[in-house]
């Protein structure tokens, strides 16, 4: 019994740390995006100097913001869902089994995304692909989002583990 609650505590604390780090990164990236767009316009009108490749930098930041933010919502399973038949389906199987099928599906899909992104990043690295305007290596961005996608899968699994531990806990706590 104490082993289980210890496990839960470990899962919970590592999950919290991971989510906090991802939150900080995603928030920071969004802040930079805002400041950069703002400065780009101001710079253009006041100092006649747009940021060369500014749009390319903002595009890259967008990708980073999405994939760091994705880690957070994956950990919380905060996704858009159609909750039309959830109740009747839950009556057909135990909540735990239902939850596991849903979460495994999400983990599988996110794993697929992480896999293809890694392959894509590897290709842009080996072929030395460059961005169009700044001619900077494309893998800077593709590899970063691939790494975020992997972290996001891990945090997703941690989130699932935490949820399952919780479901079992509440099931154990209920009188039969």
């Amino acid at each position: 019994m104490s082993g289980a609650s210890e496990n839960r505590a470990i899962v919970r604390s590592s999950l919290t740390t991971a989510v906090t780090i991802l939150e900080n990164i995603s928030g920071f990236v969004i802040l930079i995006m805002m400041l950069l767009t703002f400065i780009d316009v101001i710079g253009r009108y006041l100092f006649h100097s747009p940021i060369f490749g500014g749009t390319e930098i903002i595009s890259a930041l967008l990708a980073l913001a999405i994939f760091s933010g994705l880690g957070v919502i994956n950990a919380r399973d905060d996704h858009i869902t159609v909750e039309l038949f959830e109740a009747p389906i839950k009556r057909l199987m135990t909540p735990l089994v239902y939850e596991i099928t849903i979460q495994l599906f999400s983990v599988f899909c996110m794993g697929l995304i992480a896999l293809v992104l890694f392959e894509h990043a590897w290709e842009s690295y080996t072929l030395n692909k460059l961005t169009v305007v700044l001619e900077m290596p494309l893998y800077y961005v593709t590899a970063s989002i691939a790494v975020f996608a992997v972290i996001s899968v891990v945090s997703q699994i941690a989130g699932v583990a935490f949820k399952i531990l919780n479901v079992r806990k509440s099931a154990a706590g209920q009188p039969r």
């Binding site: 006649h48 747009p50 060369f52 500014g54 749009t55 169009v132 305007v133």
Partner: peptide, 26 residues
């Protein structure tokens, strides 16, 4: 003295080299 859209690649680089304010997009 111009703020100039230029095709990315050689043209954008040339325009930047000459000192125009370059915005390069596809």
């Amino acid at each position: 003295s111009r703020k100039m859209w230029a095709l990315p690649g050689p043209l954008a680089n040339i325009a930047k080299e000459l000192g125009a304010g370059v915005v390069a997009t596809p």
